[in-house]
Design a binder for these strands. Structure first.
Lengths: 333, 333
DNA sequence: TTGTAAGCGTTATCAC
DNA sequence: GTGATAACGCTTACAA
């Protein structure tokens, strides 16, 4: 691999000038010299060594993204959107997949710190992410989900209002007149799970004579399908289900199909996230649409030029509720 | 952030010794000294700077993975599997998503070279990947799909036999007695697409009085659904479809649902890749199962200790054909 | 406008 | 068994 030294030698100049040319500064270069450098670089196929550059400058121009499960299309779409946004600012996105394991998340945390990413976008598998490690390493973090009171001091957050979204989705089901609804929540007692629960409860509390209950499952089609199959085969089969992720909702659709129930005639289903798959599921899935692109752009903005010393910010973005066939379409007025 | 210098100073020794301790070599260290270094490091929260280490050693212990579309679950599952395999050898996987764009793939190529990844696993969006760039940079590459004759000199490959797989899948449909079959291939004239085509043709050639044709679509549920909807609404509606990816097959399932066709009674569908979603689609999808885990392990093995000077290897792994409901189950004997 | 040289934080050679 | 010290490839004062 050719180095700046090789280029300088060939162009009959110094490494400093090579650097000036490739960075457009901090010193000017005579047009003729610049051209000689460019030619030499082209002939040698020179590419600056990012490692050496980062070591010298103290910035890697890379952003770490930790997602709980890259196999969940929502996180894949999120990664895509953030990469696009980061790319426009010349940043590289390092995608780290926790594979639903807190231990793996921890390993990635250390790995990203060692690799000196400039900042981190975090979607944690657990409710107790290791923000301290990033903080001590001087790496600013933005979480894309609600944070506990304690964690809000160490990291920023950017999220939608889960409670309002859950309430909206549940009210939609109630407006259809479905007399029994179930909340299919994620596993564990995260801040997010609590907010889903609160929104669901609030909606139910505002309705008369509705039978409501809650179950949990891991965030995957398969586990949700298992839980749903048991639920739907039981004596008290609910008329509607609000799922806290699309993946779980797809699992419920599958369970209904297995049992021979028709959606939405026998069972109404609502998801959450708004992945593109909602448009081509059988049937098309009613869901809470996350503002993925806007979130991606905003998170990159927030991180640009931010340091750990800066006061964390906590922003809420709007969501959109999209009624489709799986819940019987738009609720009657 | 504490440096080796800080640790050395505190432990009353030199940076060399700190390095010896943290690398278990290449020189021995007296137990007492070692302990002093360890203590000092712990007190300062010292973590070696991976950048500096890589610059000095010339190895980054990272593998680049370029996938065409991280939103396609097959590639997400593949990334997961490779990351697992790479992790066991202490390597970090950098996931780069081309977003179905050759230009983006090209950018990632340059980016990975700049970041000095030790090696690259490539799934290209195009049939003309930029292997030369990696070759010149001294970075060994393994492609996870068939390569053209020209490219086989510059990179290794590890893949299943697409032609045999396509033939097997098509024969399965014919054995069910479906009299008209369609090949839903990917876009473009890639080596892979040609192999799918060849296998399909070979199977059809071995059958009597079968109506066969071929269509193409991009690799996404939505595009495949559009293509399929037109195909299935036409006058010559086929009885069975062999899709070269699961994603396309899911699109076909959706199109059938929209039109009111029942799968497999009105239309049989076979996919390719064997993503986990095949088990929870409506109905469960018959597919060619790629040996994802084995492929991941093997690709990491191949790359370990390989240099560009080494002669490329080209290996074929076995696949498994899995008959499920979408094609009417196992073919009659 | 250009060159020299001192970092950036490691590793590893070579004396002691 | 340890400690100077020269790389690794780049950036950027500072000098010329």
């Amino acid at each position: 691999m050719a180095t700046a030294r090789d280029v300088a030698r060939r162009a009959g100049t110094s490494t400093a000038v090579v650097s000036y040319v490739f960075n457009d500064g901090p010193r000017g270069v005579a047009p003729a010299t610049r051209q000689k450098v460019l030619d030499a670089a082209a002939e040698l196929g020179y590419r600056p060594n990012a490692l050496a550059r980062s070591l010298s400058r103290g910035r890697t121009h890379s952003i770490g993204l930790i997602v709980p499960d890259i196999c969940n299309p929502y996180f894949a779409e999120l990664a895509r959107a953030i990469e696009d946004a980061a790319g426009t600012t010349g940043n590289l996105l390092l995608i780290a997949d926790s594979a639903l394991s807190a231990a793996q998340e921890r390993r990635h945390t250390l790995s990203l710190i060692e690799r000196q990413v400039d900042s981190v976008v975090l979607v944690s598998v657990s409710d107790e992410p290791d923000l301290g490690a990033f903080f001590e390493a001087g790496i600013p973090v933005v979480a894309l989900h609600p944070l506990s009171e304690r964690d809000r001091r160490h990291a920023s957050s950017l999220t939608i209002d889960y409670e309002a979204a859950a309430q909206r989705a549940t009210e939609h089901l109630l407006a259809h007149g479905y007399g029994s609804v179930v909340l299919l929540n994620g596993p564990g007692e995260s801040t997010g799970a609590r907010q889903h629960r609160a929104g669901f409860d609030r909606a139910v509390a505002g309705a008369e004579g509705v039978r409501a209950s809650a179950v949990r499952s891991e965030i995957s089609r398969h586990r949700a399908a298992e839980v749903a199959e048991e639920l739907l085969s039981g004596p008290e089969r609910p008329r509607a289900v609000y799922c806290t992720t699309d993946e779980q909702a797809f699992g419920v659709l599958y369970a209904a199909h297995r049992i021979g129930l028709t959606v939405p005639d026998d069972l109404a289903v609502v998801g959450f996230d708004g992945t593109r798959n909602c448009l081509v599921s059988i049937p098309a899935l009613t869901t809470v649409q996350q503002p993925t692109e806007a979130m991606a752009r905003r998170v990159v903005e927030i991180l640009a030029g931010r340091t750990v010393e800066d006061e964390p910010v906590h922003e809420i973005l709007g969501f959109e509720f999209v009624a489709r066939e799986s819940s019987g379409g738009p609720a009657p007025a």
